[in-house]
Amino acid sequence: MNILITGGAGFIGSCLARSLLQQGHSVTVLDNFNPQIHGSNTELTADLRQSVRLVRGDVRDRKVWASTLPGHEVIVNLAAETGTGQSMYEVAKYEQVNLAGTALLYDLLGRKADHGVERIVVASSRAIYGEGAYQCPQHGQVYPQPRVSSEKRNGLFDPVCPVCAVICLSVPTPETAPFQPSSFYGLTKQVQEQMTLLFGEVFGIPSFALRYQNVYGPGQSLKNPYTGILAIFSNLARVGADINVFEDGEESRDFVYIDDVVRATVACVNSPEKRSYAVNVGSNERTSVMQVAQAVNRYFGGKSKVQVTGAFREGDIRHGMADLERARAMLGFEPRVKFEDGLRSFLAWAEESEPELSGYERSLEEMKDRGLLHGRA
């Protein structure tokens, strides 16, 4: 098939392109090489340069969509602004890229009945859930509201039952969970996903919205200070700088390795499904941020001081882990890479590049100046 990957020069897009090429598909990459993600690099990796068609352009440009779209049976829509914290003050940019860009796609598809598009896959996010699913001793599975800043200032970080206000235990979040995003990024992903699934049904284009958890692995951006704590911690640990952990360090994430993410995405491209669905993509593991910081520091010789600061950012969630039952049933997906192994591969790769620290410090100052970062970061 002829497959268009928006944001295809990025981390997930490049890895996905390689996998699709190996299966005999033809791949077009549409990317604007955003410096926040790519730094000064404005080229595809050497192995992709001769194998894919590259379109330099922006998904916010109608003419780019109109000239690139024809001839593609599958669209994998990865182009997005992805910083949870940054989305809280770069609101218009996140709206334009994540929502207006996707709206242009469906505007064009709706004007031409013979567009030839047979499937669309969009990168959604676990951020649409907000805090996600928890278990209350009295009320069973519940979905807590976003945490209150005044309580976090007093060191009360755990979500509580929305019925009885008792602290709850985090459990894997299913796709049936309500939408409760706690950041504007999450809100844009919610609407982008709903747009994809709605028009998938209306236009008869089977579509998948993949709710990626925290994707990591060799090849991810080490320069983007707004996403990826593994990249941030590895930069700090390599130079022996302090690694300051937000909240109490017990907040946790579902870190899913890039190879598993690619396998799930390829399964959607090749799926025989005729309807449109949202599907979680995760690792089946939960890892605390403190565990991550300590593991990264150990790998690089333990030169950094790892400390909990109690600081917190508006828009962050406490815990996150995906329920993978639908992914197993619908895609035959089972994560293969354990976090311990994936982390080792990522750090060995990161070790070959120069650490980048200035961007992270700048991002913290931006959030602090806007009242979105509280405490000593």
Rank of each mutant, 00 (worst) to 15 (best):
L4H: 04
I5M: 06
G13V: 12
S14K: 03
C15K: 08
L16P: 14
A17Q: 12
L20I: 13
L21P: 14
Q22C: 11
G24V: 15
H25A: 12
H25D: 15
V27Q: 05
T28Q: 07
V29K: 08
L30M: 15
N34A: 11
N41S: 15
E43K: 15
A46K: 01
D58Y: 02
T68M: 10
L69M: 10
V74T: 15
V74F: 09
V74A: 10
L78F: 06
L78M: 12
A79M: 08
A80G: 06
A80R: 03
A80M: 06
G83S: 04
G83D: 03
S87E: 01
M88H: 00
V91N: 01
A92W: 00
K93C: 03
Q96H: 14
L99H: 02
A100S: 15
L105E: 07
G110I: 07
K112P: 08
V117S: 09
V117M: 10
E118V: 14
E118I: 11
V122L: 14
S124T: 13
G130I: 10
E131C: 07
E131L: 06
A133Y: 00
Y134Q: 08
Y134R: 11
P137L: 06
Q138S: 09
Q138W: 01
H139I: 12
Q141Y: 03
V142S: 07
Y143T: 09
Y143R: 09
P146M: 06
S150D: 05
S150W: 02
R153D: 12
N154M: 15
C161D: 03
P162T: 03
L169E: 13
S170P: 12
T176A: 14
P178T: 10
S182E: 11
S182M: 11
G186T: 08
M195A: 08
F199I: 08
F203Y: 03
L210A: 06
Y212R: 11
Q213K: 05
Y216C: 13
Y216V: 12
Q220S: 06
L222H: 00
N224C: 04
N224Y: 00
Y226F: 12
L230A: 00
I232K: 02
F233I: 00
S234K: 01
N235R: 01
L236K: 02
A237L: 01
V239C: 00
A241G: 01
D248T: 10
R253W: 08
I258P: 08
D259L: 13
D260Q: 13
D260F: 10
V262W: 05
V262A: 09
R263I: 11
A267D: 12
N270E: 15
K274P: 08
R275V: 09
S276M: 05
S276F: 00
Y277W: 04
Q294G: 05
A295H: 01
V296S: 01
V296R: 01
R298N: 09
R298I: 03
Y299T: 05
F300V: 03
F300N: 01
K305I: 02
K305L: 07
K305M: 05
Q307A: 07
V308G: 01
G310D: 04
A311Y: 00
A311W: 02
E314D: 13
D316E: 12
E325G: 14
R328P: 12
M330G: 09
L331E: 10
F333L: 10
K338V: 13
E340P: 11
D341S: 14
L343I: 13
F346L: 14
L347F: 00
L347Q: 02
E352S: 13
G359P: 10
E361N: 04
S363N: 04
E365G: 10
E366P: 09
E366M: 08
K368C: 03
R370A: 02
